[in-house]
Amino acid sequence: MKNKNKKGLYLPVDAKINDVIDLTPDVKLYKLRKPQSFFYSPGQFVMASIWGAGEVPISITSTSEIHQDIELCIRKAGFVTSALHRLNPGDSIGIRGPLGNRFPFEDAYGKDVLFIAGGIGIAPLRSLINLVIEKRKNFGKIALIYGSKTPTEVLFMPETQNWKENGIDLTLTIDVECKEWECSFGLVTEHINRQSISFESGYAFICGPHVMINAAMHDLSLLGMPAENIITTIEAHMKCGVGKCGHCYSDGRYVCTDGPVFSYAEIREFGMASP
C-alpha cells in the first residue's frame, strides 16, 4: 500500500457523485467517479471526507473488475455520515485511499466459499461476492447467509436474486418472524450448520456487527473450519486510516494498515480486542 498521493498523506481528492440510490431509509448507495489511478481490491476502504464535517472510514462496495464507479454504501450513524447523506448527485465527496489490506480470496481457489453478512456488513462483502461470481470457475460451492433485522433493512435485494441465479446458495434471514417475509428467520449463526459446503477445507468471509462475527467465527471453528480459513474484517474507530493516529491500534496491530481484514487465527494469536 504505497502512498500514491504525492500531495500529502491526509489530503483527500474530490470524487464527483454520479448517482445516489436510497437502499433503505437510512442507507444510501453512492456512485462516485473514479479518480485517476485508483486501483482497489475487495476488502479495502476509503476515508470519506467532507470539509467542515470530518472524515470516516467507508468500505468500497463496488468491484473494480465490474463497476465503472467507486460505490460506497453509507449508513447514517452519526455526525459525518449524516452530512454525507445530505449530498446529491453533482456534489463531491473527498476520498483518500484505497486503504487497508484486502480479502485473500486467491487462497480459496478450488475451495468452497461461505459468505456470512450481517446488516451493513454486506457492503464490503458485496465487492468480493461479485468478484467471485466473475471468477466463478475458480471456486467450489458458494453460499451466502445474509441476515438483517427486518425485511425493510435488506440491502441490495435485487442483486441478491441475481447472485442466486449465478449459482450462489442464498439464505436471506431476518431476526424475528413476520408475515411479509418469504425467506428464512433467525440469526445468521442458526443457519451455518445447514450449509452444504465443506467446512474442513472451505473458506468463510464474514462481515457484520462484532457480536455476530465472534459467534460465527466460533461456530465455524467448532464445525471444523481451520482458523486460517475464517476471514473477517474488524471495525475500529479510525481517524487517519494510515497507521498514524493510533485510534484503531489494538495489541500491536493497526486495524487500518494491518487490516481491516484478519483471519480468526490472527485474531486469536494477537487477542485483538473485540467488544
Binding site: 491526509y10 470539509w51 464535517a53 487517519c240
Partner: peptide, 24 residues
C-alpha cells in the same frame, strides 16, 4: 504519537482541519 482530527468551521464553508494530541 496519537492524535485526533477535527474540522473547525468558521462560517459559510470556511474553516480549518487540524489535528490535536489525543490519548489512548
Amino acid at each position: 504519537t496519537c492524535f485526533n482530527v477535527i474540522d473547525w468551521k468558521e462560517k459559510d464553508n470556511k474553516g480549518t482541519r487540524m489535528r490535536l494530541w489525543d490519548t489512548c
